[in-house]
């Protein structure tokens, strides 16, 4: 139903989201050749190790984009430690050391806001487990711009503050458990 509709999948997560992301990267069909943009809360002073940990089971290459790096299909992008990650016009990323938002840098709200500004109705946003409210506003923006919204089932989340916050302020299109997120994306996007 959504084949070729989306230009990017944008995923936000915090506490309890790591295992879910690992599963997504391992099980999402390789035919889905759009960029996947991850904004996950992480330790600010630890620059290395996260990409490597996520890469173990991933079918796709994972990189932390450099400033103004071109966005390529089939690549997974991870917001670097201690920077906000923006999707910039001209199919590229931009980074920023701007103030923290929701006590976070990278802030999910900002990645979602800028990504949905660029991709509009061709953005697919997913919010996973997490212990603060970051991402809720970004998800609202994404929905307002015509994007498709998906939230991990709060019942399945290790900590459901983030998903609940998103559900509270936006009419989310789908609330799914990890298995079903994978099934849904593999069925609808390929």
């Amino acid at each position: 139903m959504f084949k070729d509709k989306f230009k990017a999948i944008i995923i936000g997560g915090s506490a309890g989201s790591f295992q879910v992301v690992v599963r997504l990267l391992a099980e999402l069909d390789e035919k889905m050749d759009i960029p996947i943009i991850l904004c996950l809360h992480r330790l600010k002073h630890v620059r290395n190790g996260f990409v490597e940990a996520l890469s173990i089971k991933s079918k796709r290459p994972i990189v932390e984009p450099l400033d103004k790096e071109k966005i390529r299909k089939g690549v997974v992008y991870l917001a670097p430690a201690n920077y906000h990650l923006y999707v910039e016009l001209g199919n590229q990323f931009a980074i920023s050391t701007d103030e923290m938002v929701n006590n976070s840098r990278p802030a999910i709200d900002l990645t979602f806001d800028t990504a949905s500004y660029v991709y509009k109705e061709k953005a697919l946003g997913i919010i996973l487990s997490g212990a603060n409210r970051d991402g809720a506003w970004g998800m609202k923006r994404l929905k307002e711009r015509g994007g498709y919204t998906l939230v991990q089932d709060p019942e399945e989340c290790t900590i459901n503050t983030m998903t609940t916050a998103a559900l509270n302020i936006t009419q989310i299109d789908q609330v799914l458990k990890t298995d079903d997120i994978i099934r849904f994306l593999n069925k609808e996007l390929c």
């Binding site: 999707v87 920023s96 701007d98």
Partner: peptide, 9 residues
């Protein structure tokens, strides 16, 4: 200036 950041400021 980079647009996303400039807008944000």
């Amino acid at each position: 200036y980079a647009i996303s950041s400039f807008k944000r400021r």
